[in-house]
Simulated scan of single mutants.
Amino acid sequence: MSKGTRATEALAKLGVKFTLHAYDYDPDADSIGLQAAEALGVAPKRMLKTLMAEVDGKPVCAVVPSDCEVSMKKLASAFGGKSAKMMRPSDAERLTGYHVGGISPFGQKKRVPAAIEQAALTEGSVFVNGGQRGLQIELAPDDAVKATAAIVRPLVA
């Protein structure tokens, strides 16, 4: 498995300190984030999942704990919109340049506005997808916010 991805390169370019963690990706898992948390022995609230959505038809990136569901109402509100919906997987892959199960908020092909669940900022470190299936990046939550220029809002139901 390659450890150099657009996500790791983007973080390195910004001077962000991070640690890589590889695990055996299970494509049949009900929840990719929860499977990653279990494989790495990490609390699910520290394992963040990257979701690509649309607010009023415009693409956005939401980063929330793997054991939570994003509230479409809260997501729309976070971006000053009226409605939100999940992006189709094929559209998410085309926009980010990553495959579903390996979508990272860092180093996406086309940069879109991002939001991170505010509860994640209470953790000492968080895990975010590293840009390929079976690879997680551990970093400080504040660094994740800075690297994505994310807004921090309550996003979960």
Rank of each mutant, 00 (worst) to 15 (best):
A36T: 05
A37M: 08
A37N: 15
A37S: 14
E38C: 06
E38I: 02
E38S: 13
E38A: 15
L40Y: 03
L40R: 08
G41C: 08
G41Q: 09
G41Y: 11
G41P: 14
V42L: 12
V42S: 13
A43H: 06
P44R: 06
P44D: 11
P44Y: 11
K45I: 13
R46S: 06
R46V: 02
R46A: 11
R46Q: 14
M47P: 00
L48P: 12
L48C: 06
L48T: 00
K49C: 05
L51C: 09
L51E: 05
L51N: 10
M52E: 05
M52D: 02
A53F: 08
V55N: 09
V55W: 08
D56Y: 09
G57W: 12
G57V: 07
G57L: 08
K58D: 09
K58A: 15
K58R: 14
K58V: 06
P59R: 12
V60Y: 07
C61V: 08
V63P: 14
V64L: 08
P65F: 06
S66D: 01
S66L: 06
S66V: 03
S66R: 03
D67L: 13
D67H: 11
C68Y: 10
C68L: 03
E69I: 04
E69L: 11
E69M: 13
S71K: 10
S71C: 06
M72D: 08
K73Q: 12
K74W: 04
L75I: 04
L75F: 02
L75S: 02
A76G: 10
A76W: 01
S77C: 01
S77L: 15
S77H: 15
A78Q: 12
G80K: 10
G80W: 03
G81C: 14
K82G: 08
K82A: 11
K82P: 06
S83P: 00
S83V: 02
A84R: 04
A84I: 07
A84T: 03
K85P: 00
K85N: 06
K85D: 07
K85Y: 06
M86T: 09
M87C: 00
M87G: 04
M87P: 00
R88P: 08
P89S: 04
P89C: 10
S90N: 04
S90I: 03
S90Q: 05
S90K: 11
S90W: 01
A92W: 13
A92C: 06
E93H: 00
R94V: 03
R94G: 08
L95N: 11
T96G: 07
T96M: 09
G97W: 01
Y98C: 11
Y98K: 07
H99P: 11
H99F: 13
V100N: 14
V100K: 13
V100M: 12
V100T: 12
G101S: 04
G101F: 00
G101L: 07
G102V: 01
G102S: 01
G102D: 12
I103N: 07
I103L: 01
P105N: 05
P105V: 09
F106Q: 04
F106E: 05
